[in-house]
């Protein structure tokens, strides 16, 4: 095997995450699928860092983790504030805004 296998695995994980975002209804699970996508990006970055021989990829991955943490805080706060009102985290229920 070559490090390319990691890249292919990361691409597959990215796609699984993207499909999850489109398919799942629970807002928190949708957000977890986004987190999976970010993780696959991290794996891609670390693998490319090794292939290219520079550490920039690892540092970018580090920043991605920090940004993901901040995003999780804000996102879960938004989801919680909606849940407290609606008693449901289903995104199908978020249907007041329409065509």
């Amino acid at each position: 095997m070559t490090p390319t296998y990691y890249l292919v695995l990361a691409a597959i994980l990215f796609t699984i995450g993207a499909v999850g975002v489109l398919v799942r209804r629970n807002a928190i699970v949708v957000f977890m699928c986004v987190e999976l996508m970010l993780n696959s990006v991290n794996l891609t970055l670390v693998t490319f860092s090794r292939i290219n021989g520079t550490l920039d990829g690892q540092i970018i991955a580090f920043f991605v983790m920090v940004v993901a943490a901040a995003e999780v805080v804000v996102g879960l706060a938004i989801i919680m504030s909606i849940f407290r009102t609606r008693r449901s985290a289903s995104i199908d229920d978020a249907n007041l805004l329409k065509y």
Partner: peptide
């Protein structure tokens, strides 16, 4: 609140795409 949720979920989804592009360009 619903507008905030929609903006957030779609925004997070697309910034993951931006990041993947960034990773590939870095590669």
């Amino acid at each position: 609140q619903e507008a905030a949720l929609k903006y957030f979920l779609l925004g997070a989804f697309t910034s993951a795409f931006f990041l993947y592009g960034l990773a590939l360009l870095y590669g």
